[in-house]
Design a protein around this nucleic acid. Structure first.
Lengths: 146, 146
DNA sequence: GGTTGTTTGGTTGTGTACAATTAAATTGAG
DNA sequence: CTCAATTTAATTGTACACAACCAAACAACC
C-alpha cells in the first residue's frame, strides 16, 4: 500500500472504459444481422429515425443521433445511393436539406423488424437489469446533452 | 394502437443506442482534459495499461483494451513518436512486439493523475448508481468477451 | 437595398475501429 | 530434419466520428 495516488488511473477503476468497450462490442454483435440487409450500424440507426419520422432535415437528424454533418453528409449520400432515401432542399428555406424515406426504404423495415428480437437474445441481462442500465445511461446522457 | 410490430425498431426502445451515444459523449467530455496532455482517448487508455504494467506485447495490450493490431499498430507508432514508449521485438520470440514505457511515459503519469477526479465531476450519477452501471456494463461485456 | 450576423450543410484533415489479407517466426507431427 | 499449421503483427481498405473551416441562404437592422 505504498502509493495510492495512481489508483484512479487504472483501467479497472474507470467507468468510461467498460462503456466504451461495451458500445463497440454491441455494435460488433449487430454486424452479422446488419450484413444481411447490407447496412452498417450507423446506417441502421439512421434508418430507424426515418422509419419513425418519414422525413426530417439533417440538423434534426443529427440531434436525434448525436451526430454532426461531417458524419451524416457522406452517410446520407450512401443511403441515397442505395435507394433508401432522397435528399432535397426545402423550398421554404434552401439551407435546409430534407431527408425523406423512399418506398424502398420503407420496404427495408420489413427485413429489419426481426433484428431487435434477435439482438435481445445476445444480451445477457435480465429484463430488470436491462431497464436499469437503460435508465442509468439516459441519466448520464441527459446530463451531458439534454 | 394499429401496428405494434415496429415498436422494437424505434430508437427510444433500443438499449444499444444510449450505450453508443453515451460512450461517444463521455469520450468528448474527456477531450479538453486530454488535450492538455496531447493524448486522444484511445492513446490515454493505452497509456493507462502501460502505467500499470510497464511493458507487454501487442496481443496482450489488445486483449486488455478490446482492440486489434489494425488499430494498435498506428496508435503505438504515434505514441512512440511522442517518446512515451518503445517498440521492440522479443528476443525469445521474434513475433512478439514488446511495448515498453519510457521515462517520459512514466513522467506523463504525473500530469494525468488529476484527470480521473476532474472527470468524476462531469458524471451526474451518485456513487451507488455509478457502481451499479459499472457492474451492469461488465456483466454485459463479460458475456460478450470473457 | 446593403451590411452584418446567424443558421445550415458541406468539406477537409486527423484519428480511430475492424475485417480481411499477408508475412515472418515458431511449433509440432511425421 | 522438414513441411504444414499456428501465432503474432503489420498492411490494406472501408466506414465512421468529429474539430475546424467554408459557403450559401436567410434574418435583422439601418
Amino acid at each position: 500500500m505504498k502509493d495510492e495516488r495512481y489508483e484512479g488511473l487504472k483501467l479497472k477503476n474507470q467507468l468510461c472504459f467498460p462503456l466504451y468497450a461495451c458500445a463497440k462490442e454491441i455494435v460488433r454483435r449487430y454486424k452479422p444481422f446488419l450484413d444481411e440487409i447490407d447496412l452498417t450500424y450507423t446506417q441502421y440507426i439512421t434508418m430507424m429515425v426515418l422509419w419513425e419520422h418519414g422525413e426530417l432535415n439533417v440538423k434534426h437528424l443529427g440531434e436525434c443521433l448525436f451526430l454532426d454533418s461531417g458524419t451524416l453528409t457522406p452517410l446520407l449520400k450512401k443511403l441515397e445511393a442505395k435507394g433508401y432515401l432522397e435528399r432535397k432542399r426545402s423550398k421554404e428555406d434552401e439551407r435546409n436539406l430534407i431527408v425523406c424515406i423512399t418506398e424502398e426504404g420503407e420496404a427495408l423495415k420489413e427485413k429489419a423488424v426481426c433484428i431487435p428480437e434477435k439482438m435481445g437474445g445476445c444480451i445477457n441481462l435480465t429484463q430488470e437489469e436491462a431497464l436499469q442500465l437503460y435508465g442509468l445511461l439516459y441519466k448520464l446522457l441527459g446530463q451531458i446533452e439534454q
